[in-house]
Design a protein around this nucleic acid. Structure first.
Lengths: 331, 331
DNA sequence: TTGTAGGCGTTATCAG
DNA sequence: CTGATAACGCCTACAA
């Protein structure tokens, strides 16, 4: 049995209230008693029961993080940024994986609803999130990351995907490409839609007709990157590709390499996400360097702000971070 | 205020005990009452307060996971394996990052000691772990992963690093290399020591004298991979490299590429960890494919076993998983 | 077959 | 300045 505040009180000859106040510094205690209590605390190696504390204080100092894929390089960077800020503020993180499945997402939210967390950061999966209206009764603040959910309005921290895809497309067009294929993630999530919008805008401004068959959606995974690329090259005669994720880009590169297609001579490529390994492919990849850590930090800061000031129920806040394009040999 | 069991009891005209028993199916309740209670439960959208439940039952159904680097591809795979098994068993996961710093590790363990978790999985950082003897009073079971700690004995799930490094070294020696450099992680952690042991054994058996200056330790990061490689090549005249982590291998490759050194003609390379991107470097990397997900799964299974059967205090169990070498163009 | 009531370890509200 | 004591929400003897 772990040692409790009661044990300390008895051993120090004071009340539990005094012990609690010594621990938390929440009201005046004479130096003498304080010293005595601290001694006993040390001696008995006391550690507060956070469960009991949370139950009583209605604050768990824990936030939930719901990611669609915890082994994605991108989301891992986000998680690290979040963790950094949480640590600095004395919060912990309960991590879950929605596996990009809305049923699992709902299930996890129900778990989080059990007073376990003071706030939630989530990347909403593909699907309709209007269910959050009922599921979540403003029990705790919520910050969306990476994607804006459908059917629910809330604070979010996202990337300027319209602009970065616009820029990337312009770069490709300016290099003379007319058939640029998009290797995208899930359809009808905001990042995918934004990317398509940016692409269309660039094509439109540069006077290039958009061939819808060059816009393909997948699931962010290697295999879909591979197969979409195959289609775009074989059937679509694409001469350039924009990949929405590093993992899909690896799939794309694998296909190109397998077919002996030269980069960038025959097919140019720009990928999202900048990781160390993008420098050592041959040629090195031109990438949209997404500030994943910073996104996590901003989200955590915003969430903690919302936790500390629950009153601020104005219109949802939206933070947009810009990515930068790093030009390398692949285009 | 969230709806409690008391509210349900009042609304359904029964006692809290009955409600609790209906929820948990823990004693007989007449069909009629059961139906009524369930209706109210639905209607009021009740969710149990897991904190209160945990406080009462002394079980939180949550385990802690302490990793040295949550953005490492390898540990991310481990986390995913753990998460998978936990989910299947109705457990949650509290994730923390020790940043390979023993002070942070201690601090996090103290947090975990606060009855928050039913068990802990951790990859011990570089340093002495005898402090665990006092810090941990068998409050909850603990499973170490990836590395065996110094100064503390406990269950662990690790990789057969002696054998895999032995095999890798043999491959390089058999290709005619006599000056094989080791690009390792932290000194005196078990994985590093095991790798050195495997290397020595291979050299010894093949009649090659070990030049100690070819054995270099770092911190698993890109920069140390880069600088160690520079040293090994420039000063050590190494013609082959074994890298202890993917990230260090990227650093190594960056250096080699920068210097225009041909792989594998001038320098051969074998790296730990098999990720998709290792296939698209030029040439594709020969790797020690480490079963990171499986390691996570095994660790979680072992931990849950220990949680459910606390009596088993025999000698610490040690599970060793074998890696397989995937031959590609880099050696 | 169901209800009452005590307690898990804290914090917070009273008194004193 | 400090001590009792009542909650927090749930589970579970024990009673009825």
């Amino acid at each position: 049995m772990a040692v409790t505040i009661k044990d300390i009180a008895k051993a120090a000859g004071v009340s539990t209230a005094t012990v609690s106040h010594v621990i938390n510094g929440t009201r005046f205690v004479s130096e003498e008693i304080k010293k005595k209590v601290n001694e006993v605390l040390q001696e008995k190696n006391y550690h507060p029961n956070l469960l009991a504390r949370s139950l009583r204080s209605q604050k768990s100092k824990t936030i939930g993080l719901l990611l669609p894929d915890i082994s994605s390089f991108y989301f891992t960077g986000v998680a690290e940024g979040i963790e950094k800020v949480l640590r600095k503020n004395g919060y912990h993180m309960l991590l879950s994986n929605s596996h990009d499945d809305i049923e699992i997402e709902k299930e996890m939210i129900n778990v989080f609803n059990s007073q376990l967390i003071d706030g939630l950061i989530m990347a909403p999966v593909y699907g309709n999130h209007s269910y959050l209206q009922q599921t979540l009764n403003g029990q705790y603040p919520l910050v969306f990351i990476d994607r804006k959910p459908k059917g629910y309005n809330g604070d979010c921290v996202v990337l300027e995907n319209i602009k970065s895809t616009y820029d990337a497309t312009c770069i490709l067009i300016d290099k003379g490409h007319k058939r640029i294929g998009l290797v995208l993630g899930f359809p009808s999530i905001s990042t995918t839609e934004d990317r398509i919008a940016g692409y269309r805008q660039a094509c439109h401004e540069r006077g290039i007709a958009v061939d819808e068959s060059l816009i393909k959606t997948g699931d962010f995974k290697y295999d879909s990157g591979f197969s979409i690329t195959k289609e775009l090259i074989e059937n679509g005669q694409a001469t350039a590709l924009f990949c929405a994720s590093d993992t899909m880009a690896i799939g794309a590169l694998s296909y190109l390499r397998e077919k002996g297609i030269k980069i960038p001579e025959q097919v140019a490529i720009i990928s999202s996400n900048d990781f160390k390994w993008t420098q050592i492919t041959n040629p090195p990849l031109t990438v949209v360097s997404q500030p994943s850590q910073e996104l996590g930090e901003k989200a955590a800061e915003l969430l903690i702000l919302n936790i500390k000031h629950p009153g601020n129920k104005k219109k949802p806040k939206e933070i947009r971070l810009v990515s930068t394009i790093v030009l390398r040999g692949s285009c």
